[in-house]
Amino acid sequence: MLKLDVNFFKPFIDGTLHTLKVQCSLEAKPGKPFMKGKGPSIDCEIAAVIGLTSTAFSGTIALCFTKPVFLALMNNMLGEKFEEITDDLQDGAAELLNIIFGHAKRVLNDQKSYDIQKAIPTILRGKNIQTKHLTSGFSIVLPFLTDAGEFHIEICTENKTL
C-alpha cells in the first residue's frame, strides 16, 4: 500500500524555488499540490523528464512549461531575448531539471538514505504535451506561480516505503 510522505516532495519544492531565484532571478510561489487527473488541466509545450531510481522506489519527474513561461525563464537566465524554443535552447529545461533534481537528490540521500541514482533528462516538445507515467504508483502535481505564468512539476513514484 502506497503512502504519501510530504517530506519527500519538500526538497523538490525548495530546489525549484531556489533554482529559479538564483539562476533565473525569478521569485516563484508554490501552489497547492494535487493528484494528477484530479485537479485543473495542465498546459505544457516543453517538458524535461528524468528517471528516479533508488533502492527504495522508482519513478519519474517531469518539469513542464508553456512556451511563454519557458522563454521568460531563459531570457532571465541567459540575459538574452528569445522568441522561439530552438533545439539549443531546449537544453535549458533539462538543465533546470538537472539542478532541481540534484538538490532534491542530495537532500533525500543525506536525510533519508534513499540512494537515488544519477540520471539523464529527456526533453519533450510539442503542442499540448500529455505526460503519462506508466506505473501503478501515484502522480503528484506541484504547481508554481511566477510573474511570467504558471509551470509545474509532476512526480510519479512507485515504491515500498513512501
Binding site: 539562476q23 531563459m74 537566465m77 541567459l78 538574452e80 539549443d88 535552447l89 537544453d91 535549458g92 533539462a94 538543465e95
Partner: peptide
C-alpha cells in the same frame, strides 16, 4: 554539453 549552461 549544454549550450544554455555554456551561455550561463
Amino acid at each position: 554539453d549544454m549550450m544554455t549552461m555554456r551561455k550561463l
